[in-house]
Computed example of a mutant assay.
Amino acid sequence: MLISNLITVLLTGYLLVPWLSRLYSKWLATTSRRWTLAGCSTIFVAQGLLLILFSIVPGIEG
C-alpha cells in the first residue's frame, strides 16, 4: 500500500497537476465568462464520465 501510494502521489504531483495547470491556465487566470463556462463544463463532463466508469466496471468501487 505504501508503494502504490507513493506512485500515485508522484504521478499526480509531477505529471498530472502540471499538465492540467497548463491545460486550464487561461481559465485559471481570467474572469471571462466564456472560459469559466468552458472550464466548468469540462470538469462536469469528466466527473460524469468517471461516474459512468465506476458504475459499469466491476471491482473498481471501494
Rank of each mutant, 00 (worst) to 15 (best):
M1Q: 08
S4E: 08
N5V: 07
L6Q: 09
L6W: 12
L6R: 09
I7N: 10
I7L: 13
I7Q: 08
I7H: 09
T8K: 09
T8G: 00
T8I: 09
V9C: 02
T12Y: 03
G13A: 06
L16N: 03
L16H: 04
V17W: 02
P18R: 00
P18M: 01
P18F: 02
W19V: 13
W19T: 15
R22H: 13
R22L: 15
R22G: 14
R22C: 12
R22K: 14
R22A: 12
L23T: 10
L23H: 11
S25L: 12
W27I: 05
L28Q: 10
L28G: 00
A29S: 15
A29Q: 14
T30E: 13
T30L: 00
T31A: 13
R33E: 13
R33L: 15
R33P: 10
R34L: 07
W35K: 04
T36N: 15
L37D: 08
L37F: 15
G39A: 01
G39Y: 05
C40E: 10
S41V: 10
T42V: 10
T42Y: 01
I43M: 04
I43Y: 06
I43F: 07
F44W: 12
F44I: 14
F44R: 06
V45G: 01
Q47P: 03
L49K: 01
L49Q: 06
L50V: 06
I52Q: 03
L53D: 01
S55Y: 07
S55G: 07
S55F: 11
S55C: 06
V57P: 02
P58I: 01
P58D: 08
G59W: 02
E61A: 10
